[in-house]
């Protein structure tokens, strides 16, 4: 490996010469081309601008609405910043902002129950998706190499049909005279149709089914990279296969597992369509609560407060976790 910034001074880093102390990267102290610097800056700016425009600005708007008061008007909240009066208008509006909506969320048990139940459902379904997804991803990664594109294609294939239609299809399968019950009765496993639709079981089935590809794909990509000689090395050193799985395969698939779990857990917490269509009225989830506040009650400020709290609930543990991961990778404990 030769660092271009060092080779100009005649210093090259060689792989075979053991460095006395480990350095993650060569120091970048060589003067950079100012033109290249601007190009690099502009390049980095694009994703940040994107995030600013499509994440931060809407977030600020939602946060602002959550501090307002509901009103029968268009838009349905007060106060509205009167931009024609410039900064004075902003100041006047800001003086009337209050945390009432957030206090309201703590007073009505419904919200907390919805949050807790959402987190519970999301957590359990993420775990179940992992349990279902791991063998699938493992099987894919261990399959003959020529099959891989086909197998990946098969995992992605459901995306070609509308998500809504696929969830609707589950109604047809799970309802009391649906496909599943009819089949089970015909083979004689059950006499009475099972009640699955409009229960939380149907929600779990729906979430696991819908989010399975998001679990399988990152898992597959990390299992596929796993060097099979590591498995052989473990067995050679006296490790039976099941132990090798826990000592070698799982730790090395961990990045894929974490990515898959986040990709399932985060959208599942706020999931609305699946509990609405499959869960019936008995399933309490925050996405549904949000929808009701927004569209049925037309209480935008409370709905915004619900959304902000949800975001904070998700962001804090994720940030803490990522910081821990970064430190673990750098520090090499």
């Amino acid at each position: 490996m030769t660092d271009p910034s060092l080779s100009s001074t005649g210093i090259t880093r060689s792989e075979t010469v053991p460095a006395p102390r480990y350095q993650p990267e060569a120091p970048e102290n060589a003067p950079t081309n100012p033109k290249g610097g601007w190009g690099r800056f502009a390049f980095i700016c694009v994703p940040y601008l994107w995030l600013l425009l499509f994440f931060l600005v809407p977030f600020v708007i939602v946060a602002k609405i959550s501090l307002s008061e509901a009103a029968v008007s268009i838009p349905p909240y007060l106060p509205v910043i009167d931009w024609s009066r410039g900064l004075a208008g902003l100041w006047e509006a800001a003086e009337r902002w209050s945390l009432d909506n957030y206090i309201w969320l703590t007073e009505d048990a419904l919200y907390w129950q919805a949050y807790v139940s959402s987190l519970q459902i999301a957590f359990l379904s993420t775990l179940l998706t992992l349990l279902v997804g791991f063998p699938i991803a493992y099987g894919m990664a261990r399959a003959p190499r020529s099959w891989h594109p086909t197998l990946v294609m098969m995992v992605i294939l459901p995306f070609w049909t509308s998500f809504l239609i696929r969830v609707y299809a589950w109604i047809g399968i799970l309802k009391s005279d649906g496909l599943l019950n009819q089949t089970l009765i015909t083979i004689g496993i059950i006499d009475e149709p099972l009640v699955i639709l409009n229960t939380s079981i149907a929600v779990y089935i729906g979430i696991i089914y819908s989010y399975l590809p998001f679990m399988v794909l990152p898992l597959y990509s990390s299992l596929e990279k796993l060097d099979t000689t590591l498995i052989e090395a473990a067995e050679d050193l006296g490790c039976p296969p099941w132990k090798t799985f826990w000592r070698v395969t799982v730790p090395l698939a961990l990045p894929g597992m974490i990515a898959g779990c986040f990709l399932v857990f985060i959208p599942a917490v706020g999931e609305f369509v699946i509990p609405d269509l499959l869960g019936g009225s008995s399933t309490l989830m925050i996405g549904k609560t949000l929808w009701v506040e927004f569209f049925s009650n037309r209480d935008w400020p409370v709905a915004s407060a619900v959304a902000i709290v949800l975001l904070v609930l998700l962001i804090i543990p994720i940030t803490l976790f990522q910081r821990h991961e970064t430190r673990r990778n750098e520090g090499d404990v």
Partner: peptide, 10 residues
């Protein structure tokens, strides 16, 4: 015990 060509260190 075997020493692998790729070393196969964990």
């Amino acid at each position: 015990n075997m020493m692998f060509q790729s070393y196969a260190l964990f």
